[in-house]
């Protein structure tokens, strides 16, 4: 059956340059993501046998390759980068009071930025120090990038350190162009 899902970026990849270290931007907007928030969100994670003591603005890989991201003590995102989303809403769409499902599958586009100079490149668009020393693997920044609210998470994906960028889906086209422009100088063939 054909999927009804269409990414605002049509699942683009910035380039086919697989040289080690070169910057690459991928659209993962159709990958599965969900989340909960509320005063009992942490207990809900515990009931689902998920890590429930994550500090705000951190991200942790789960044994099944999903990622759990904490945006506060009451808001958690579950990310499954290798699993395409289905047409239906998440299984825990209706949860109990104090545990409210998030709409992040549709509200935010998901871009993944890989490559050695990713922090330098994002420094052209974002005022947060994203160098590994200040922003190590497992950390999250809720900030602005090119004047657009963005959540930036630093984690491993397929064995490679990457930044996941979550951007309001209505601004994804703009953000993609801004990122492409900023990346140009780093991917110039020498």
């Amino acid at each position: 059956m054909t999927s009804n899902l269409v990414s605002p970026l049509r699942c683009l990849t910035s380039n086919d340059d697989d040289r080690s270290g070169s910057l690459k931007l991928r659209d993962l907007s159709l990958a599965t993501r969900s989340g909960v928030r509320g005063v009992h969100a942490s207990q809900w994670l515990k009931s689902e046998s998920l890590p429930h003591e994550l500090q705000p603005n951190t991200i942790e890989a789960l044994p099944d390759h999903r990622l759990l991201m904490a945006l506060s003590t009451r808001e958690f995102w579950l990310l499954d980068p290798d699993n395409p989303s289905g047409d239906t809403e998440p299984t825990f769409e209706r949860t109990k009071p104090g545990v409210w499902p998030l709409y992040n599958q549709n509200s935010h586009a998901w871009l993944v930025l890989s490559g050695e100079p990713r922090a330098d490149m994002l420094a052209k668009l974002c005022g947060v120090d994203l160098r590994s020393k200040a922003f190590p693997l497992g950390t999250v920044a809720q900030t602005q990038m090119a004047l657009v609210s963005t959540i930036i998470a630093h984690h491993l994906w397929r064995g490679e350190p990457v930044f996941s960028l979550f951007i309001d889906q209505s601004l994804t086209d703009f953000a993609w162009e801004a990122l492409q422009d900023a990346m140009a100088e780093f991917n110039t063939t020498r």
Partner: peptide
Amino acid sequence: GRRFHPIKKTPMD
């Protein structure tokens, strides 16, 4: 510098 003018687009744009 480079000026940013974020414009929101709907999925049907």
